[in-house]
Design a protein around this nucleic acid. Structure first.
Length: 713
DNA sequence: GAGCACTGC
């Protein structure tokens, strides 16, 4: 194989440096020892002892549950075992799904290195905006959401011989939908291959009669049965095993150092104060090692940070060697990166984190964990149709995950700020997301896959019936579904194809008729990402002044449009005179000066180019309304009519479709001016019912533009 | 007068 020779040579960024001072021979030597070291590490992983068993189990069973704790090596090793076990013969691909992008990328990189191949060849990854795969890719790491999207184009997932769903215990909405889909695909593919193998040549696919929708695209193709592996870190494999018809489960040992769990004797009335006391108790009495504190949000993190600094000043100078680092998702990435820097000699780090540090971010050097026992979680009230962020108790699994963060590099200690009796009352695991979110998108996807009976779909956990009905109604009002709840011919299919929330897709489709698709692409991209503006407490005034430069009296949508256009102008100018790297660096500086989160803006620019390609492929005409913002606002009203609200005498707003009383969020540019009639993007209940991203509209537009909702009866 | 965490062709 010609590629083998190339694969044995060191690659860029590997061991060969670019200035040619190192001889090829020396580089080869380094490379060999590095390869040997990797092979040794692989062999010492707990999973290595069961390689043969696992390959046999997969060969003999179509579905297998693999339970492996942290450090077992399951994610990196199992795909390689199966590859060398012959599961990619005939060109089949092993797909491995992850709930998070970073995991898909970093694991793929590691496995490519272990295999000694360039990333994107035998081993690759695919995530939104970034596809590192090729025709020769046989082990493909990806996000579970991406595989769901792939299923829209190829409902039988025909290129995959094996699909491994990793981190299934997290039970994200994507994982749950994927499990249902895979179960169905597996059934279909078994029946197709049985037929193809000559059991019944009369064309009647009896066993799969129920799954008609999946059969059609598979029909006529010779497909091998799909091997399915569900990997979970939870100790309880029963749920998955039962769901897949008593599938076999294999347990693989983890590799974790012991963590001492300490509880309080009494319940703490104030966990922030308890956290503070515990931080200093560890700092003054325990040996070296960094501290990770789990809190619920930015506000708590910032207040604990202030309190630590205050108390530190009261200590003798020798005891002041303690540094705090906050980390939460909306923190700009430069600041997030600081948690990874080792503390200066003699100093101890305290990391104050949200649950971002539970799974998404692994910080080295942690020996002590302080667990508040609470988390801010999304709750969905299906009856009222409101999402809220509530502080709730963690589950047992979550508490275990948190304490595990202390035992990654050596024995550790976890201080739970609650009594053991309290822990015993925690739920075993966190409620699956599908039971606590809006289902419009899930339903649209399933409908596009030909699954019409949503309530009858074989979910591992059935979503709330009211939530299903509510979403069906709103999809009907948006024109995606017919009265019989079938996907509508053009609009419904177009909406399912766009990787956006249904109401945003609707806005894009409508805007091409209103001649403002250019503006809507920008606004939808900006609404799709995390908060664009960054307002640190210590620079509140400056950040407000920066926002005023962009703000529009018509509302937040047009303000976002102004930000995107200003940034784009800056980018275009910069591209002419600077290298790509320099231009990107300059854009980050521009963002910082304007109190804009550069990560969010970059994300919005990625979404923008993706959905621009999408609408072009659909044949929509991209035209601009120029300065005629009235047209644009009318288009917003025609799309977001379910989110229209009227001002009340007391300054509150009443949502016309539900009657719910809400307030404009203080971050809105219309917080003070309070127009008579508005549409909003999102409603989230925190301390109040807050609506975010507001645009001024005319009340009289509603019966004209959304007669299905506001028409005269 | 205030922002859990992820994610998508």
């Amino acid at each position: 194989m010609p590629s083998m020779a190339a694969n044995n040579l060191p690659r860029k960024n590997d061991t060969c440096n670019n200035n040619h001072t190192q001889s090829i021979e020396a580089a080869k030597g380094d490379f060999v020892t590095r390869r040997q070291r990797i092979q040794q590490q692989r062999k010492s992983l707990p999973i290595a002892s069961v390689e043969k068993l696992l390959v046999e189990e997969v060969r003999n069973n179509n579905t297998l549950i693999v339970v492996g704790e942290t450090g077992s090596g399951k994610t990196t090793q199992l795909p390689q075992y199966l590859f060398y076990g012959g599961f990619c013969r005939d060109g089949g691909v092993i797909g491995i799904t992850q709930p998070r992008r970073v995991a898909a990328v970093s694991v793929a990189k590691r496995v490519a290195e272990e295999c000694g191949v360039a990333l994107g060849q035998k081993v690759g990854y695919a995530i939104r905006f970034d596809d590192m795969t090729s025709a020769s890719t046989r082990m493909k790491y990806m996000t579970d959401g991406l595989l769901l999207r792939e299923a829209l184009l190829d409902p039988c997932l025909s290129k995959y011989s094996v699909i491994i769903v990793d981190e299934a215990h997290e039970r994200t909405v994507h994982t749950d939908v994927l499990l249902g889909l895979l179960k169905s695909v597996q059934k279909t593919r078994s029946s197709v291959s049985k037929v193809m193998n000559g059991h019944a040549q009369n064309g009647l696919l009896m066993g799969a009669e129920k799954d008609k929708s999946f059969l059609m695209p598979c029909h006529g193709k010779k497909l091998s049965p799909l091997k399915l592996i569900i990997m979970s870190a939870s100790l309880d494999a029963r749920v998955f095993s039962e769901y897949f018809g008593s599938a076999r489960a294999v347990h693989v040992q983890g590799r974790q150092y012991p963590v001492d769990i300490l509880y309080t004797h009494q319940p703490e009335s104030d966990y922030l104060d308890a956290a503070l006391i515990t931080i200093f108790q560890i700092h003054l009495e325990e040996s070296h090692g960094d501290i990770l504190v789990f809190l619920t949000g930015q506000e708590e993190i910032e207040s604990v940070e202030r309190l630590v600094h205050e108390r530190l000043r009261q200590l003798p100078e020798g005891n002041q060697k303690l540094l705090t680092f906050p980390i939460f998702s909306s923190l700009p990435s430069e600041k997030q990166m600081k948690v990874f820097m080792p503390a200066p000699p003699g100093f101890r780090k305290v990391i104050l984190a949200t649950n971002i540090a539970e799974t998404s971010v692994t910080i080295p050097g942690i020996r002590y964990v302080i667990d508040s026992g609470v988390v801010k979680a999304r709750i969905y009230d299906a009856d009222a149709g409101i999402e809220s962020l509530d502080i709730v108790k963690t589950s047992k699994a979550q508490a275990l995950q948190r304490s595990g963060r202390a035992g990654r590099e050596g024995p550790g200690k976890c201080y739970r700020l609650y009594p053991e009796s309290e822990f015993d009352k925690f739920e075993d695991s966190t409620t699956p997301e599908i039971k606590r979110c809006d289902l419009s998108n899930v339903i649209l996807q399933l409908k596009a896959l030909g699954i019409d009976d949503i309530a009858g779909f074989d979910f591992i956990d059935k979503p709330n019936r009211t939530a299903i009905i509510r979403s069906l109604e709103s999809l009907f009002l948006l024109g995606a579904l017919t009265e019989e709840s079938k996907l509508t011919d053009i609009v419904g299919h177009q909406m399912a194809r766009l990787p956006l929330e249904p109401v945003y897709s609707k806005a894009l489709i409508l805007s091409s008729q209103f001649n403002c698709l250019e503006e809507m692409l920008i606004v939808v991209a900006m609404l799709s990402v995390e908060s664009i503006f960054y307002a640190p407490r210590e620079k509140l005034e400056e950040s407000r002044a920066a926002l005023r430069c962009f703000s529009s009296p018509e509302g937040d949508h047009l303000t976002l449009l102004n930000v995107f256009r200003a940034s784009n102008e800056f980018v275009v100018k910069n591209k002419l005179t600077h290298s790509k790297e320099k231009a990107e660096k300059n854009l980050r500086k521009w963002c910082k000066d304007n109190f804009i989160n550069s990560r969010s803006l970059r994300h919005a620019r990625d979404v923008h180019s993706q959905i621009q390609r999408n609408v072009e492929q659909m044949g929509l005409r991209i035209t601009s309304c120029g300065d005629d913002m009235l047209v644009f606002r009318r288009c917003l009203a025609a799309s977001f009519f379910l989110n229209a609200a009227l001002k009340q005498p007391d300054g509150m707003y009443r949502i016309l479709s539900s009657g719910l009383m809400v307030q404009i969020h203080p971050s809105s540019v219309l917080f003070r001016s309070k127009p008579e009639c508005i549409i909003f993007d999102k409603l989230v209940r925190t301390n109040n019912n807050y609506i975010r991203n507001i645009c001024r509209i005319d009340y009289l537009w509603l019966p004209e533009l959304a007669p299905q909702c506001y028409g005269l009866q």
